[in-house]
Design a protein around this nucleic acid. Structure first.
Lengths: 214, 214
DNA sequence: CCAGTACCGTACCGTACGGTACGCCGCTTC
DNA sequence: GAAGCGGCGTACCGTACGGTACGGTACTGG
């Protein structure tokens, strides 16, 4: 249930190679220039005409939406290896989620796209925020919760509500990082620090919800 | 160029009553209309002339900055009652922080202002994000950390780094709430749910960092 | 009563940017 | 090689909005 399911869910056909190049140009511009993205700049950067842009994507919002979807499509989930769950595997799986989630939100692209989506949610007609939410917070939730449930089934975790447990995990991992980055804090995380943060979050989560196998 | 004008440029002087009314008009407009705030709309709403707006606040950014500062000035800290700290008092203080923090970030005004600041941080020249950060995340941190330190001094908490401990607290309280609201999620919290959330966060924090008094 | 100040209302200017029109080129197809 | 087409480059249009100018009004001090 990877690429196929995703496409079916969104109901949007994948962009052609040329269109992908355009969307990559948009991403590059967003990362480099901040969010004052103009259609002229996109056309220049992507070496295409504005008319083509409008033909392909409808309007500016359509281009932004396609860009967000495009970026989301490449941050596809990690392995969802099923199988028996012991304490060590559970910890590894959670650590994996925590690391990849921190990698994503600390990335320049994610920050810029979230900024766009948030600004968009401020004005009316914004489904852009919903898209980012669906591919960020909700997607990770949908992937983590089954792991938590499996952990409970294996007697490794104890909780009443999977959603609440996940949200705690989310909070322990993300803490103040995303809001600080969105607000322009210079905070930067290297791979080592991300690993450390993720490990701490997992430890704390297991301290709260873990239980020795009976 | 008078002394008054200079102080206005720096934006550090308290606004007059009339100016406060203008800033309240900006806040109302932001809450009602989303973030497509125009100087014309502000002037109309506040029954003042655009020329006066520019005279008082310099430019659009100055108006926004003054508005953010104005809002920040009214979300002034709770009581910082010193005194002996027992387990119950510590829990109360933390609960207090958690509730008021959730109250703030769940508020329409906070959401809109954060959106503005985040959008602003996306373009260059954005000290607006820094201002919101200073009056939000950093302010609450500066107020909570002494409490945590006091808790440690009283033998009620155990941690190495106060900053890390606070950030965990922050994560447990806020979880995914702020990002979801910023992205336009319809999520709404009534007072009862906020109290429940805050209590859960405090319980979890104490479970992680608390220790019985020796 | 006059001068000065502070401010409102409104008309105005300049520009940036979303969106459109059009001419031209290279590619495919018959 | 003519026809058709997809797409590049550019010129262009309309408008929204930031910022300025200016006339008119109320109030204060002399």
């Amino acid at each position: 249930m990877t690429a196929t399911a995703t496409r079916e869910e969104t109901g949007h056909e994948a962009p052609s190679a040329r269109q992908q190049a355009v969307l990559d140009a948009v991403l590059a511009l967003l990362v480099e220039e901040g969010d004052q993205l103009t259609m002229d700049a996109v056309a220049r950067r992507a070496s295409c005409s504005k008319e083509t842009l409008y033909k392909w994507f409808g309007d500016r919002d359509g281009l932004l939406t396609a860009t967000v979807r495009w970026q989301a499509s490449r941050v596809h989930a990690g392995r969802d290896a099923g199988g028996p769950l012991d304490a060590e595997t559970l910890r590894e799986r959670l650590l994996d989620f925590a690391v990849s989630w921190l990698d994503v939100i600390a990335g320049r692209t994610s920050v810029v796209l979230n900024r766009i989506a948030i600004a968009h949610a401020g004005s009316r007609k914004g489904n852009l925020g919903a898209i980012v939410l669906a591919n960020g917070r909700l997607a990770i939730g949908a992937r983590v919760k089954p792991v938590l449930e499996a952990g409970r089934a294996a007697g490794l975790l104890a909780f009443d509500d999977g959603e609440t447990a996940f949200r705690t995990f989310f909070g322990l991992v993300g803490r103040d990082i995303q809001i600080r980055l969105l607000l322009g804090d210079a905070l930067e995380l290297d791979a080592a620090e991300i690993r450390r943060d993720a490990a701490r979050a997992v430890d704390q989560f297991l301290a709260l919800y873990g239980q020795a196998r009976p």
